[in-house]
Design a protein around this nucleic acid. Sequence first.
DNA 1: GCCAACGTTGGC
DNA 2: GCCAACGTTGGC
Length: 145
Amino acid sequence: MQYWLFKSEPATWSWDQQKKKGKAGEEWDGIRNYQARNNMREMKIGDRGFFYHSNEGLEIVGVVEVCAASHPDSTTDDERWDCVDVRALADVPAPVGLKAIKAEPRLAEMALVTHMRLSVQPVKPKEWKLVCKMGGIDPETLKPV
DNA sequence: GCCAACGTTGGC
DNA sequence: GCCAACGTTGGC
């Protein structure tokens, strides 16, 4: 299983909205960046990702699961753009802010820090575990710790 | 709301 | 294929 991080501006698509979609999940559409798209093409059903609020909040607030593999983005006819579907799995009880991530030396290599503008990015297993710990959630069961 | 960083577009 | 102009992202 691979780990990822999805950025969303809460004014456009918030964690609450994602949760309301429940198990059915929702397309992660609207991505118009090649690197972000390539990352989504790499994803497999069951991969997990963090849900990050950009612009407002600036924190990781939830965990999602990829529930449909890469397919054409329904919001455009441009065949260059694909996306996956994701569904909410769990809240992060203690949201992990960008500040906290930047303050943690072991997270200095996170794409969130090094590739600031990339909106869909990979997360290393070690980073995943540490961020889960910081957020008060068990990385395996996703239960609050 | 500003603006730096950076990705994309298009003329040559 | 270079690079200037332009548009967008996202932290502050």
